[in-house]
């Protein structure tokens, strides 16, 4: 019997989709369905109690959005109960807020920085925990009793972001300039572990990339950024985009997903 897997998510689904197209012939027992949209649209998708997911109330979406989704996937919603496994890809982890938080403070017993406001380590942990909670999938995704749900968070930024001139990446430029690489790596690893634990406590399993994708500072190695392509029209991302990864990254994550699902 075939294993039915739904991969749903944001633009970060693109490298997985490409990787699957190259590898699907090796997994005849897997029926994999994709349902994705750019983050700004995907995050507005709705889910109901029967686990229908997508555009459930057309009046809340533009005709263009509806047309795009219908044209791409043949439907504007997907019935997630039809799948043995659902993989939710691209949930934002709010790690830039974490970077901003760390940049803002001199944290007792953790990071001493002259000229920054002081904060106790306990307060920092509480604030970090709050951020991690805010990065969790919402109530409707928690504690499913039918279908397995996995989450694959959006990739961390690529290491090249620390030389970016864009204000979008400024917190990373600052964090990297003021702290050793190992500090950044530990910070990010601990934070992602926290999100993973929070998800686990709510019945959601996380699939995290292996360590090999990360540079010494905990950001994604630059080789996985080169040649990243967009979900729509397959156009290449600009060199100032440090968040979308290429097919090599997609292959690693796909392997991780299949390995985890088949083991369970």
């Amino acid at each position: 019997m075939n294993l039915k897997i739904a991969i749903i998510g944001t633009s970060h689904v693109a490298p997985l989709y490409t990787a699957w197209n190259s590898a699907s012939h090796l997994h005849k027992n897997i029926d994999m369905v994709f349902f994705a949209a750019p983050g700004s649209l995907f995050r507005r998708f709705q889910i109901d109690e029967k686990r229908k997911f997508g555009i459930l109330d057309s009046s809340l979406f533009s005709p263009q959005d509806i047309h795009t989704i219908k044209n791409t996937f043949g439907a504007i919603k997907i019935d997630l109960k039809q799948f043995d496994t659902v993989v939710h890809v691209g949930q934002l982890s709010r790690e830039t807020q974490l970077a901003k938080l760390v940049n803002q403070f001199s944290i007792d017993e953790f990071r001493s920085k002259k000229g920054c406001r002081r904060i106790s380590f306990e307060a920092f942990l509480a604030l970090r925990y709050s951020l991690a909670r805010s990065a969790m999938l919402t109530e409707s995704w928690r504690n499913w009793t039918t279908s397995q749900l996995y989450t694959v968070p959006a990739p961390r930024f690529a290491e090249s972001c620390i030389t970016s001139k864009s204000s979008y990446y400024a917190p990373w430029v600052k964090l990297s300039a003021e702290n050793p690489a190992s500090f950044m790596k530990d910070l990010l690893d601990d934070y992602y572990n926290l999100i993973e634990i929070n998800h686990k406590e709510n019945g959601i399993n996380s699939i995290l990339p292996p360590d090999e994708v990360y540079a010494q500072n905990g950001l994604v190695r630059a080789i996985f950024q080169n040649g990243a392509r967009q979900l729509r029209e397959n156009a290449e991302y600009s060199s100032e985009d440090h968040h979308h990864m290429n097919i090599q990254y997609g292959e690693i994550i796909l392997h991780r997903i299949l390995d985890t699902i088949q083991r369970n």
């Binding site: 807020q97 938080l101 307060a123 509480a126 604030l127 709050s130 951020l131 909670r133 805010s134």
Partner: peptide, 15 residues
């Protein structure tokens, strides 16, 4: 003494 807006009010208020 502000704090990042992504931190929930509940946690921010506790500290």
């Amino acid at each position: 003494e502000p704090i990042d807006s992504a931190v929930s009010d509940t946690t921010a208020n506790q500290y």
